[in-house]
Design a protein around this nucleic acid. Structure first.
Length: 822
RNA sequence: GCCGUCGUGGUGGAAUUGGUAUACACGACAGACUUAAAAUCUGUUGAGCGUGAGCUCUUGCCGGUUCGAGUCCGGCCGACGGCACCA
């Protein structure tokens, strides 16, 4: 039996990591003549918890892709950096009295040590940090460009407010009515905020998805999030007033069934109608009540609809001049379709519920095409639910008898002619709330001057550095802690010289990450956010990998910024990422999300310490399909450890013997393996690639198999991206005269030869009526006739056919022959 | 409710995209080595009957298309993720 060695992974891994760093093996080269490949992984937030095994999974996977691409002759840029602004750091600073910059520095150190211990081939010379003034100078600069282009504006808006963090939130940061960060229920507040006009790009953000290679589910989620819908807008006049109410509807065919109009409590018209409203006190109370309701309560469908009538005010349906009542209800979303809806109880379930509650009349104006498809009715024929399908118009004046589709066209045309409405496209996407009332973020580079108003900080004065303060707590009044920093706050107006006040809001932590991949092209540049030529060489990103949770946040935001920069002529393409893939989460042993409170967190350091980085790497690749969530299983790591030790022992015992004749079967298997691994990596199928290595190795490990040096080399080159340290060690073991620089990672990626893949013989399966009955091996060259003959000679087959009649023979080349018998 | 993903052994999962279901690994059981254990190695391992090497059943459930279905179609059940009063 072969000798067993102790696999000294600690020494081996450290040694090669140092050599790789010294020889700058993984640094990208600007303007290289090799074809470029920009491979990007989402950069981490360096939290105090250290690296998560989920980071390890995606960094390793993309590392494997990067290493393989280099071996294929590409000039690969695989960079990393730190997305370091954020609330947890600020909170920790408040608790411990340590400056966030100090904490960030410390956390980055930990992350860096951990990532380096894994042997990920990042190009560290391109490292960036969003909290570095040299970096955020350009984040602020991009903001100024947005401002100059009219895409950044200040507005008092009903925004999502987290009462616990004392901060305004973007819609994307509110998860089921709760603050994404702290879980507190959010409410609506009107606060002056900086906004970015992402809605201006809504169409292009949908349309241009056609030109990029993203996972289909990512595209669908983005499209749904943007929520484009086609409809009609129309104006209802208010009786005895010059005012009117605009509503948006996708079902203008139901216009004759409108029996009320409902406004959102935030609607600005309410204030203007104050003098007409007879029950003002009641209305005011309702507004106050719904303001205090959390978004979660407001959105709770189970609790039914509430509302209050604006007594004394009537609106007029332009189609039949009927007077209908005006209401206020908090089921109407303030920020969509103008914050008002026309109520058609017979044909909209929400309106039906509202009508039942407040005795609003129900008028049917659509009947089903077929009588069987109608809504449920009570004993006296009254509706028990709304009939929401399209159908044929009834009780609709001149439009009676038209189909819904026709009616929508004709009614919209009628409105357009009279200039009281028309076609309208609406989006669920809202403008991006860009202000945060927090310390640990990029200051918004704006000065408020008593004379000139809003004045952008001149570009030469960038960056507006965060001042050093002692108190990081939000003020609770809705102002950022920066508002208490007098010295920093007061500043001369760049226009008129009078004393102004700096903007105290900071940017959300999505700001720095919206363009970081551009900065990687040229991270040290002080003259521009990146050199144009370098961008032209590297951009767009060829492969971008990240979590599904960023689909409607980071991914959409960064596409928006990039498109804006493109429009300004500042970046070379209109989409930032040619290809987007995502990874599944790594869950705890029980299948639940890893969390401190459950106590199922796995620290990668412990695994590296016990088994080494290569074992952790292949375990995480093997555990399941890359794009699906997988639960951690400590036991299964043992199997990977065994595999790696077996490879090490095998090559330690391997006697290099160049006289060895090549085993034909080994050669075939090697070529099959090259094909398999190359294809699996193209499709991000890391788990089956690892399985293929095991299968191959199980075969060649047999002492009877002749394993010549060429095949021995090829195998170790193929596994190298997966277990780089072990592979590099073995490479130098079987090529003892190789210098450090002659790394396995500068070897060319093997190519397979089709002629070697096919064996001389092939196994055929014989089926009778589609059921497997026998199998036999024939020369690959055998013809259909020969195979058929051979199959019919088989005793088993004879037994099954018996004296039944063969009515059909199905022959599938290289696979099977099927006899259909009766 | 809407959109998406998925359902295969005790477990994680394979399956050339309609062609040998259960690859690879974990676990379990038995044996070898050992004073013993660990480690390692060798077997067995979907279920049932036969208990010789033979047959039958099996990919959440029901039906369909096909010579042939884990894969395609229709209907149901269940899990996970996202959105959610968007008019």
């Amino acid at each position: 039996m072969a000798k067993q060695y102790k696999y000294p992974f600690r020494g081996i891994e450290k040694k090669w990591q140092k050599i790789w760093e010294k020889t700058r093996l993984f640094e990208a080269e600007d303007f290289s003549l090799k074809p470029k490949q920009y491979i990007l992984i989402e950069f981490p937030y360096p939290s105090g918890d250290g690296l998560h095994v989920g980071h390890v999974r995606s960094y390793t996977a993309i590392d494997i892709i990067s290493r393989k691409k280099r071996m294929e002759g590409y000039n690969v840029l695989y960079p990393i950096g730190w997305d370091a602004f954020g609330l947890p750091t600020e909170n920790y600073a408040i608790k411990k009295g340590i400056h966030p910059a100090k904490i960030t520095e410390r956390n980055i150190k930990i992350f860096k040590r951990q990532i380096k211990s894994l042997g990920v081939s990042f190009d560290w010379s391109k490292e960036i940090n969003t909290t570095d003034p040299k970096y955020y100078k350009w984040t602020q600069w991009i903001f100024l460009q947005l401002f100059k282009a009219g895409l950044a504006y200040q507005a008092e808006m009903p925004i999502n407010w987290c009462p616990s963090c004392k901060i305004g939130l973007a819609n994307e940061e509110v998860i089921q009515g709760k603050c994404e960060r702290c879980g507190a229920e959010t409410e609506k507040r009107r606060i002056k905020q900086w906004m970015l006009r992402i809605t201006k790009y809504a169409d292009r953000l949908i349309e241009d998805l056609n030109h990029v290679d993203y996972l289909e589910k990512i595209k669908i989620q983005q499209i749904n999030w943007i929520g484009k819908s086609y409809g009609t807008n129309l104006k209802f006049k208010i009786k005895n007033s010059d005012l009117g109410i605009e509503v948006f509807t996708t079902r203008v065919d139901t216009i004759f069934g409108v029996t009320a109009v409902v406004l959102a409590p935030e609607h600005s018209l309410v204030e203007k109608l104050k003098s007409q409203i007879k029950n003002w006190q009641e209305v005011e109370n309702y507004i106050e009540q719904s303001r205090r309701k959390s978004d979660l309560e407001r959105a709770d469908l189970a609790k039914g609809k509430t509302g209050v009538e604006l007594k004394g005010v009537k609106v007029i349906n332009p189609f039949n001049n009927q007077e209908i009542s005006l209401w206020m209800g908090d089921y109407v979303v303030a920020t969509y379709g103008g914050g008002s809806v026309m109520v058609v109880p017979a044909h909209d379930q929400r309106d039906f519920d509202f009508a039942q509650e407040y005795d609003v009349p129900i008028v049917e104006v659509i009947k089903p095409v077929s009588d069987h498809q109608g809504a449920e009715r009570g004993s006296s024929g009254e509706l028990l639910e709304a009939f929401e399908e399209k159908g044929v118009l009834i009780n609709s004046g001149d439009f009676t008898g038209l189909s819904s589709e026709e009616a929508i066209k004709k009614i919209t045309y009628w409105l357009t002619e009279r200039k009281i409405g028309g076609l309208q496209i609406n989006y669920k996407l809202r403008d991006w709330i860009f202000s945060r009332q927090h310390y640990w973020g990029e200051p918004i580079p704006i000065i408020h001057c008593p004379k000139c108003g809003i004045v952008p900080v001149p570009e030469k004065d960038l960056p507006v550095e965060l001042p050093y303060v002692k108190k990081y707590q939000p003020t609770g009044t809705g102002e950022s802690p920066l508002a208490q920093c007098e010295r920093w706050l007061k500043v001369k107006c760049p226009k008129c010289g009078s004393i102004g006040r700096r903007e105290t809001d900071t940017m959300p932590n999505w700001a720095g990450s919206s363009w970081y991949f551009i900065r990687y092209c040229d991270p040290q540049n002080n003259q521009a956010f990146a050199d144009a030529e370098k961008m032209k060489y590297w951009l767009p990103v060829d492969i971008y990998n990240g979590g599904m949770e960023h689909t409607t946040l980071h991914l959409l935001y960064s596409r928006f910024w990039y498109k804006f920069l493109y429009d300004q002529g500042l970046v070379p393409s209109d989409e930032p990422y040619a290809k987007r893939r995502s990874h599944g989460m790594v869950l705890g042993e029980g299948g639940e999300k890893m969390s401190k409170s459950i106590g199922n967190v796995v620290n990668p350091d412990e695994i590296v310490e016990k088994y080494g980085a290569d074992v952790l790497r292949i375990y995480e690749m093997f555990m399941g399909p890359y794009d699906q969530p997988v639960a951690w299983n400590t036991k299964a790591i043992e199997g990977m450890n065994r595999f790696i030790i077996r490879i090490y022992d095998f090559y330690k015992n391997y006697k290099i013997n160049n006289d060895l004749d090549v085993d034909k079967e080994v050669e075939t298997k090697t070529h099959q393996l090259i094909k398999k691994i190359t294809e699996d990596l193209g499709g991000f199928k890391f788990n089956t690639a690892v399985a293929a290595f095991m299968e191959y190795f199980n075969f060649i490990e047999d002492e009877a198999v002749k394993f010549d040096l060429e095949n021995a080399k090829t195998f170790i080159i193929l596994v190298a991206p997966f277990m780089p340290h072990l592979a590099e060690e073995i490479w130098h073991l079987i090529r003892p005269r190789a210098k450090d620089e002659e790394s396995i990672f500068v070897q060319p990626w093997p190519a397979y030869d089709k002629n070697f893949i096919n064996l001389d013989t092939i196994e055929y399966v014989v089926q009778i009526n589609g059921k497997l009955r026998d199998r036999f091996i024939v020369p690959t060259s055998a013809s259909e006739e020969e195979i058929k003959e051979m199959a019919l000679k088989s005793e088993k087959v004879k037994n099954f056919i018996n004296n039944k009649k063969i009515i059909k023979v199905v022959f599938v080349a290289k696979r099977l022959i099927n006899f259909v018998v009766l």
